[in-house]
Structures are given as structure tokens and as C-alpha cells.
């Protein structure tokens, strides 16, 4: 039936439409696909990798980047025990929510119920310390960029010498995957920058991989629950579709 073919073709076209994105027309090369433990319907967060990633964040990235949407208590999700979480929290100084009886704000050791504090009290201080550039919050970065984990990994490993004739502005760095190729952040990772407790060699690709695993978890802590629930829901619905189709056929069998 020509109409069936037409409708199928148009449906196909329509579903492809978002992919036919002419946006990647900048000369930014396509991101190399990484393999992530959380890929696919049955993916999970590799806890060991995420813990190493948190270490990378803590020892390297947190000098400039906040993770505003994370609480210390969220770290329990990565496999830290209650005591470990308390220890991590109390190693930070946090501004108390209320002033003291003299009306002054004061610092105190962190508790699990506190947000993980960022390096700067506000955006202006952050800019002042970074030549006017604002280091973005990292707790959402993986969801806030086209390409997600592959993009962040690309940025961290994409620092190269600029090609001949490229006009690199003062204070900027050349990065293969950053749109426009000029990024204000100097390469944050170098081999051996962090010593992992589990003995994993801290190469740049390894650290990048681990910190991206951590950051993906930070942006989507409910991913595993979502996938598990989705599996049950879809299975239930598949059964439901079958039963309802059979019921429909049975009822319609006498429609003559």
C-alpha cells in the first residue's frame, strides 16, 4: 500500500531528523567513542574507577571547579563507608548556615549533610583567580555538554600543539575538541599527578577516564536505578502488550 510505505518512510525520516544535525559543521573533529562501564542498558558505575575519579577531582580539579549539587552524604553511593564519609566531610572547613551569637559567619568542620564546598565564595572571586575566566561547575558538566562523557574525556586528553598558522590568543591553550579550539584552562592532568591508593598507574588517559566516570555519576547518580526500573517496566509492558493484543483479537473476532 503506497500510504503504508509513505508513512513508514516519513516516520523513519522524522526519527532521524535530530541526528541530521548540521551543527557539527565546525571543523571540530568527531569525538572518539570511549568505552564506559555505565554504557548500555545494563551499564553500572565502576565504583573503583569513580573513587579514583573523586580523588582526581579532589586533588586536581577542586582547586578551581566546584561541584555544587553534591553533598558529602552522596559519596556513600560510591562505596565509601559511613565513617569514611564522615572523615572526608570533616576534613573540609564549611561555613555554618547561621552566624554565631555575635552575628559573624564562621567556619566549622563539614558534616555528611553539608554540600561539598567549592574553591571560591562566588563567581567574581573565581574569575579574579582565573584571568577573568569562570571555571564551570562540574557536578552537571557531563549532562551539560553535547557528547557527554566522551566530550569531557576529549577535552582532558585533547591538548596538542596548535597547527602551523593557528592564531592562538594570549593566555589560551589549543585543544582539539573544544569548540573554536581555544580553551582558557591549562592542561589539568599530567602523568603521575595523583597517586592512586589502589596502585593503578596514574596516566593521563587513566585519570581522565576515572574522573569522567566520577563526573558522570555526579551528574546522574540515579542512572543505575533508572535502568533497573526501566527494565522491569519494559518487561511488564511487553507482557501487557501481548495480553491486550490477544484480548483485542478475541473481542473483535465476533465483530461481524
Amino acid at each position: 500500500m503506497p500510504n503504508r510505505i509513505c508513512s513508514a518512510a516519513v516516520l523513519g525520516l522524522f526519527l532521524c531528523a535530530p541526528i541530521l544535525d548540521a551543527r557539527a559543521a565546525d571543523e571540530t573533529p568527531s569525538l572518539p567513542q570511549q568505552e564506559w562501564s555505565f554504557d548500555g542498558i545494563f551499564g553500572t558505575y565502576d565504583r573503583a574507577s569513580a573513587q579514583r575519579g573523586f580523588q582526581v577531582y579532589k586533588e586536581v580539579c577542586s582547586a578551581c571547579h566546584p561541584v555544587r549539587h553534591l553533598y558529602f552524604r552522596d559519596l556513600a553511593d560510591l562505596g565509601y563507608s559511613e565513617d569514611e564519609v564522615k572523615a572526608i566531610a570533616s576534613s573540609y572547613q564549611v561555613t555554618n548556615e547561621q552566624p554565631n551569637d555575635q552575628g559573624e559567619m564562621y567556619q566549622r568542620p563539614g558534616r555528611p549533610s553539608d554540600r561539598i564546598p567549592g574553591p571560591f565564595p562566588n563567581d567574581q572571586a573565581a574569575r579574579a583567580a582565573n584571568n577573568g575566566a569562570l571555571p564551570p561547575d562540574l557536578s552537571m558538566i557531563v549532562k551539560a555538554r553535547e557528547g557527554g562523557p566522551d566530550y569531557v574525556y576529549g577535552i582532558l586528553t585533547g591538548y596538542k600543539e596548535p597547527p602551523a598558522g593557528f592564531n592562538l590568543l594570549a593566555g589560551m591553550q589549543y585543544n582539539v575538541y573544544f569548540p573554536g579550539h581555544q580553551i582558557a584552562m591549562p592542561p589539568p592532568l599530567s602523568d603521575g599527578a595523583v597517586t592512586f591508593a589502589d596502585g593503578t598507574p596514574s596516566t593521563v588517559p587513566q585519570m581522565a577516564h576515572d574522573v569522567v566516570t566520577f563526573l558522570t555519576w555526579a551528574a546522574e547518580p540515579n542512572l543505575e536505578l533508572r535502568h533497573r526500573t526501566g527494565f522491569k517496566v519494559l518487561l511488564f509492558l511487553l507482557v501487557a502488550v501481548g495480553v491486550f493484543y490477544a484480548a483485542k483479537r478475541k473481542i473483535w473476532a465476533t465483530a461481524h
Binding site: H227, L234, L237, V241, K248
Partner: peptide
């Protein structure tokens, strides 16, 4: 029954988006 059947098919698609490609 036909609408209910159609609903379950639709819910499959909807659930796929919600749980796997939100």
C-alpha cells in the same frame, strides 16, 4: 480494548524514552 492495546504500545515507547534516553 483497542484503545487500551494502543495505550500499552505507546507506553512502551514512552517508557523507553523515560528510562533509557531521557
Amino acid at each position: 480494548i483497542k484503545d487500551l492495546f494502543g495505550l500499552t504500545v505507546f507506553l512502551l515507547i514512552y517508557a523507553f524514552f523515560v528510562f533509557y534516553a531521557p
